[in-house]
Nucleic acid binder design. Sequence first.
DNA 1: AATGAATGAGGTTTCATTCAT
DNA 2: TATGAATGAAACCTCATTCAT
Lengths: 205, 205, 205, 205
Amino acid sequence: MVNKEIREPRQTRSIEKKKKIVEAGFKLFCEKGYHYTNTNEIAKEAGVSTGIVYHYFKDKKSIFLAVMDEVIPRFDAEKIKELNLSKDKKDLEAFFSDLIDKNVKLHQVTKVAHEEFHAMRHSDPDVAAYMNNFNNKFLTEIAEDLPALGFDISHAFEKVDMIYHLIDQYSDAVAINKRDDINYDAMKKLLIEAILNLIYLSIAD
Amino acid sequence: MVNKEIREPRQTRSIEKKKKIVEAGFKLFCEKGYHYTNTNEIAKEAGVSTGIVYHYFKDKKSIFLAVMDEVIPRFDAEKIKELNLSKDKKDLEAFFSDLIDKNVKLHQVTKVAHEEFHAMRHSDPDVAAYMNNFNNKFLTEIAEDLPALGFDISHAFEKVDMIYHLIDQYSDAVAINKRDDINYDAMKKLLIEAILNLIYLSIAD
Amino acid sequence: MVNKEIREPRQTRSIEKKKKIVEAGFKLFCEKGYHYTNTNEIAKEAGVSTGIVYHYFKDKKSIFLAVMDEVIPRFDAEKIKELNLSKDKKDLEAFFSDLIDKNVKLHQVTKVAHEEFHAMRHSDPDVAAYMNNFNNKFLTEIAEDLPALGFDISHAFEKVDMIYHLIDQYSDAVAINKRDDINYDAMKKLLIEAILNLIYLSIAD
Amino acid sequence: MVNKEIREPRQTRSIEKKKKIVEAGFKLFCEKGYHYTNTNEIAKEAGVSTGIVYHYFKDKKSIFLAVMDEVIPRFDAEKIKELNLSKDKKDLEAFFSDLIDKNVKLHQVTKVAHEEFHAMRHSDPDVAAYMNNFNNKFLTEIAEDLPALGFDISHAFEKVDMIYHLIDQYSDAVAINKRDDINYDAMKKLLIEAILNLIYLSIAD
DNA sequence: AATGAATGAGGTTTCATTCAT
DNA sequence: TATGAATGAAACCTCATTCAT
């Protein structure tokens, strides 16, 4: 029917309105989940009319995708910032301790958002593609940057992937799913040891 | 001739019907996600009428809860079976290699289910409570069994948790989200080394 | 998504409900036109709920198609009945006079319906295909039946088509779009003469 | 240097803009039908803004009415031109053959428009009034012109009407709704014969 | 005279749940 | 127990029209 592309508004006020919709979507998706948030609520939360939402977005899912576009890079930007910040660190133990602490905090803040993204990933191929692609790119970049950071290690891509998930898993556990029988401080020490061991591990091809 | 009908006891047939509904729900939730599966489809897939679904279940969410109740233990039973099966193994390297391979296979089937359960956690406190407890209980059990299996290691709970997630993460990567720049055979070797290192790692409290 | 075929209800009460929806659609489409009738109105007019409409029909257009399916054959059945009725007529002039009169009356009754069908034909290919097919089949059948009726004329198909439209056009003019400067009685006589001439006309191939 | 702008008179530019909107409306109404064309599309097709459309036209229907006002006369002007062009023809057979051919060509373009106008007639009394009058006026004019063209025939109005519709019907069939079992060349010959017969037909009042 | 973002009522359709049988 | 037709609230989305600029 109508060739209806998603508008990229030029004027400042318009961009702000689009942003407001994305922010409203982000807030509500986090609070209630994608499927329990309806477009009228998003419009109301953004302080705009129903119609204008569809002026800027093709459909509800596009709002979600825009939220991801907006939010995920914001999170990962913070992660990379942490990384750069410690470029000249020689004490790897302290570096990872720091990195882990920061990641835990980030998890505490972004928890709901990540959960929702994760949830959507399952039932929607577009979301899945987006998230997989993003994570992979992120990890590949880090692995590629390692030599410049002074690390010349074998199987960098594989190790970075493993380390990333170890840290993420730990952060997740601390931030979201705490167990009584786990000593998280001890676990953190184990984690750092495991990471350091892993970095200098070499295997026979 | 005497009309001698074979009468299936009602309760049994009921239970079977209920089971069919749960199986149908499980299948469809995995395939399409909770929110994209409707009750008519579940009924059709189960080979029963729409109405009867509401005879056995209060509402749609109850079907989901029943699926969790029914399905998650089944998976974990399989996992534990694998573990028991190799109780007498002395060669840990070979043991973990085997365990990883089996977990990869299991993953392709269970991952979708787990993701869906995880996804629902966000929008429903009942699901959240269930999920948070389950995995934890499973891991706690394994850690508690370790001494009986001949392993007397420090920080068993923490290590089991880390190892479990390392393996799970690897399985996930292989089964679902493969990257081009990763050599998964090398990664597996690294993984096993890391696990073995971790097991005998000791840290100062 | 869901494979949702249009149900063909078996039970009598269901069939009646489906019929009611079609009748309601027919009535409202005639009164207000397809685009000015909404599905809620159809449901209300049929005395059913909105939902059940979509139990029997895939979408709004399907209701329209069903109305056509139901109504057009009904009209044409009447036309053909007239034709059979006069199988043994020898006086062609009287026969056509009669046929024309009846067609005029039919036009007066079916006018609105036909106009609506015609209107939809333009903007909807499905409707167009249906109507073209129907009319063509109807005329072809008549032409094929002519020998059995005792008429062995050349170019029967072409002639039947022309005669049909001549009569239809006349009926339309009388029933719907009367002009002051036309003497419709005289026109009818001309029409009959033209038809008779046409029947026995032969042309060189 | 004197800033000497060439100033297009406002009114003229306005009229041109209005014309563009009408042309756009005509094009889109023909292509997709009135109800499937929205005002934004018309504006875009006309190369103007949405707002300005409502400066020149009260509402969407007014655009349609303007399209009719503008377009129908244009077509009929062409038809009459064809007629005049052959004023001095003596060979009626050749004349009609030519007229038919030209009408067939014209039909492909005008038919869609006429159908749409016709369709709108049903749901709108304004359109109905306009349409009912227009064709009638056109045919009346031709019939009144006939004596001046050298034809002094009885029942001119009725015959012109019938001939017009015979040709139109034929053109329609050839241009739009071709059937396999019809030989359109033969049909054309029959058509011309029928017309000639009709012209000189006299009936008893 | 001109723009195009903005409005919001209203349309079509879905689906968890109920109910007559 | 069992059926599946029936309900109707609520979701997503469209579009004629208005309005701030």
